[in-house]
Amino acid sequence: MNGNLYQPISGRIIDIIDESPTIKSFVVEAESPFKFATGQFIELTLPGVGEAPFTPSSSPKQTEQMEITIMKAGRVTGLLHECSPGQMVGIRGPFGNGYPVNGFAGKEIYIVGGGVGLAPIRSLFLTLVDRIKDFKKVVCRFGARTPDDFIYKKALFGPWQKINGVDIKLTVDKGDGQWTGNVGVVTTILNANDVDVKNAVAIVCGPPIMMKYATIKLLEFKFAPDTIYLSMEKNMSCGIGKCGHCMLGKYYVCKDGPVFTYEQIRKYPKIWD
């Protein structure tokens, strides 16, 4: 790939959706149609302020506008949360490998997600649902701290659950007056019978601690390490495997990931830190 890969193209925030007390989705329109594969990420620049990596949460089919779901976590995301529609932004990418969706054909797909980890998963989910007949079934097990912390509530509590071939179960760490579902961390709703492990792949995306225990559970269910796909969160900065911040063993998460199989990274220390 040539050209100056540090140069963002410009874009504009055209809508902002409140998802949860700490998470908002930003609808961004780039100056020209923006193509990406599901699971790839972009570097979003708030000009003059900083840049941070996000996996778009919209379907890759949608190239005119992309949605980026952002949790208020640090300086850049904090200031993004204060932006209004009309704000100019920069976009670099797409970077990384994304999910090998074609390789999932004919399989059962077991998606385990938590918190803002549902952002990349939404993009994947929309991609899978688009060709749902290619897969045996899509089983989702999602968790959030409280019912109010779920993002994409409208779709999640409604239409997504009604899609043929999709099985969704939700859990919260702590319920509220209305919650009638499961209470407990996401591993409490994982069950060895949810999928036929021999013909399944697992996708895990969420906070590191959740990813760790979900992976342990999946291994207990006899998922092979090369069938567990993990979306790794590191300090991706350049996006092109040079600046060094996101190194995970010999890998650059930005270039070789952000999606890795557990097999690829299991030998490295501190993958969950």
């Binding site: 540090y6 620049t45 976590a73 969160e233 590191k234 300090n235 060094g244 911040h245 501190k270 830190d273």
Partner: peptide
């Protein structure tokens, strides 16, 4: 957007926005 030398010896080098820091 400036490109500036960094050092993996720096405390916050690998830290992510949420505060997690493998090193």
């Amino acid at each position: 957007k400036m490109k500036i030398w960094d050092s993996c010896m720096r405390f916050g080098y690998a830290m992510v926005a949420g505060g997690a820091n493998p090193n």
